[in-house]
Deep mutational scan, measured.
Amino acid sequence: TEIRININGVTIHVRDASEELKKLIEHLLRLGADEKEIREVLHRWEK
Rank of each mutant, 00 (worst) to 15 (best):
K36M: 14
L31P: 01
L28E: 03
V14Q: 04
S18M: 05
I5M: 05
W45D: 06
E2Y: 00
I3K: 03
L42D: 00
I3M: 09
D16A: 09
H43E: 15
H27C: 13
I3Y: 01
L24N: 08
V41R: 05
E40P: 00
V41K: 04
E46T: 13
K23R: 09
E37C: 06
E46I: 12
G9P: 02
L24Y: 12
R39D: 15
H13L: 09
R15M: 15
G9C: 03
I3G: 04
I12M: 01
E40S: 04
I38C: 01
D16T: 07
N6Q: 10
R39T: 08
E26A: 09
R44T: 09
G9H: 10
E26N: 08
G9D: 12
I3S: 04
R39K: 10
N8T: 05
E35K: 02
L21H: 01
H43K: 10
R15N: 14
D16S: 13
L29E: 06
H27T: 15
V41Q: 12
N8R: 06
L42P: 00
N8Y: 00
K36D: 11
H43I: 11
E26K: 07
G9I: 03
I38R: 00
G32E: 04
D34I: 04
E20T: 10
E37M: 14
E20V: 08
V41M: 12
V10P: 03
R44Q: 15
K36E: 10
G9K: 05
I38V: 08
R39V: 06
E35A: 11
H13C: 10
D34Q: 08
R15P: 15
E19W: 07
L28W: 03
E40Q: 05
L31F: 09
L21F: 07
E37D: 11
R30L: 15
L24Q: 14
L42R: 01
E26G: 03
E26Y: 06
K23H: 12
E46H: 12
D34L: 06
R30S: 15
R4L: 15
H13A: 07
E35S: 08
A33V: 12
N6S: 13
I25G: 00
S18G: 09
V14H: 05
E19C: 06
R30F: 15
G9Y: 00
A33N: 03
A17Y: 08
K36W: 11
I3F: 02
T11C: 05
D16F: 06
K22S: 13
I12F: 00
N6T: 12
D34S: 15
K36T: 12
I7H: 05
V41I: 09
E37H: 14
G32A: 03
I12W: 00
E19H: 10
L31M: 15
A33M: 07
V14P: 02
R39I: 09
R39G: 04
R15K: 15
E35Q: 09
I7F: 03
